[in-house]
Amino acid sequence: MSIELNGVTYETDEDGYLVNVDQWNKDVAVVLAKDEGVEMSDNHWEVVDFLREYYEEYKIAPMIRILTKAIGKKLGKEKGNTKYLYELYPGGPAKQACKIAGLPKPTGCV
């Protein structure tokens, strides 16, 4: 499977995750989001940006509470919780937000 965008081919796996993390950019993120039924707002981007930063350093998505705490710091305490993340990404922060951020799908009992 793949996504064609502005003359570039982005290869995806059977679940629609980008095969190459480094190929990611905001335009393809919007396409991935649309596919998930997610309309990207500034707050959506905050989550995606944090995921990318964390991945850069640790080669994995952050544990859920690290993410909620970081989002709470950026967007206000009342938004620093799992409920808010699910409002943004109903398919789950670990899977749906990671997909839009171009990260590989988390494996295991998650």
Partner: peptide, 27 residues
């Protein structure tokens, strides 16, 4: 795929030592 990760990295997630350490410090 998961069995490949656990036998090389040490866990199903592919969580490497630095990430695990960061998670535990956070906790």
């Amino acid at each position: 795929e998961i069995l490949g990760k656990v036998t090389t990295v040490g866990n199903n997630l592919g969580l490497q030592k630095a990430a695990l350490a960061n998670t535990l410090e956070f906790l």
